[in-house]
Simulated scan of single mutants.
Amino acid sequence: MDSVQDDCLSKLEQEPSIEDCFRHLAEEARELYLSPDVPRLTKPPTPLEFYRDYVSPNRPVIIENAFNDFPALTKWSIPYFREHFNDKILTVAVTPNGYADSVCGDYFVLPEEREMPFASFLDIMEGKSELKGVYYVQKQNSNLTLDLKELVEDIKEDIPWASEAFGQKPDAVNFWMGGHEAVTSMHKDHYENLYCVIQGAKKFILHPPTDRPFIPYGNYAQAAYKEINGEFQIVPDPGGHTVPWIAVDPLNPDLDRHPAYGEVDQIRCTVRPGEMLYLPSLWFHHVSQEDQTIAVNYWYDMEYDIKYNYFTALEKIVKVRSGEGKR
């Protein structure tokens, strides 16, 4: 029996399939530099420590006491926003189910965007409104520094030790606010992300870039939600645009349809008030939240270095091998 097993192993080593290579890549990454849990620091690292231990190896980390000097930690609340910003106009994403920028059937569906006074949004957060749908402030155009300038004095426009490590200021600073129904579907960003929770808690499901062969994509017709006569409808994009998007919901994965996703383990973490998650560029992430949550995130442009080069090569191999995007 041992000789038979040795012979099989020998053949596998001599003639591995592409799938075997993909599995080895994902397994080796976890053995060499990743862990089942996101590590934690009790205080901010120095710029050198941050770059050496986390940015360069592309590893996430949760940093406690990362922004204790932010007045927002003690000031930001519904009563505070009511007192100071009742008439401020917000851009709010509206969906029937809390899933914005996500796959629904044959479509990649964007939220309906509405402008409303801060007071109206706060009424929704407190359950005082009869409006239908799930409302979430999630506009990612540096909405905090561009649309909500009055709030900037309660935070900082950058994280100094991170800016020193990255050698630049952030490209965008975004403000997030919503209830527990709001969900961000799995995706990746070409940014180094510092995600700071002010109130509530954010729950992340993470996958490193080396899991890319097991993350299923599809090619979907673009559409948007629109409330018409009191009911939400999916309205296809008149231009006929299509969007490649991740076809699996990590909260409830359909492994019959996407069996490869079952071959890799999710990395889960929860980020609470006063904590910062460093989410490296190109990491896949799904985000949900406990109760009402307020957060700020800083996007620093990524380095288009050898890591990016390797990742794009891996992505092209996956697409060729699987015929990804064909439906």
Results as ranks from 00 to 15, higher is better:
S163R: 13
S163Q: 13
E164S: 07
E164T: 04
E164P: 04
A165C: 07
A165S: 14
A165Y: 06
G167H: 05
K169N: 10
P170N: 11
A172Q: 13
V173K: 01
V173C: 08
N174Y: 10
F175L: 12
W176K: 05
M177V: 08
G178F: 12
H180T: 13
E181K: 15
A182G: 13
A182W: 08
A182T: 11
T184Y: 01
S185I: 00
M186Q: 11
H187R: 07
K188Q: 06
K188L: 03
H190S: 06
Y191M: 13
E192F: 00
E192C: 04
N193G: 08
N193Y: 01
Y195Q: 03
Y195N: 02
C196H: 06
I198W: 09
I198F: 05
F204S: 04
F204R: 02
F204M: 05
L206C: 03
H207P: 02
P208V: 06
P209L: 04
P209W: 04
P209R: 10
T210M: 03
T210F: 00
T210V: 04
R212P: 00
P213T: 07
P213Y: 07
I215W: 03
Q222W: 04
A223L: 05
A223W: 00
A223E: 01
A224V: 10
Y225S: 05
K226S: 12
K226T: 01
K226Y: 01
E227R: 10
E227F: 02
I228H: 07
N229I: 06
G230W: 10
G230P: 10
G230C: 14
E231A: 10
E231P: 00
E231C: 03
E231R: 12
E231Y: 01
I234E: 02
I234L: 02
V235H: 01
V235G: 05
P236M: 06
D237N: 15
D237F: 09
D237P: 14
P238L: 08
P238V: 15
P238E: 14
G239E: 15
G240Q: 13
H241Q: 15
H241S: 14
T242R: 11
V243Y: 09
P244I: 06
P244R: 12
I246R: 02
I246V: 15
I246Y: 04
A247F: 08
V248W: 10
V248C: 15
V248M: 11
V248D: 13
V248L: 15
D249M: 10
P250I: 08
P250S: 14
L251C: 14
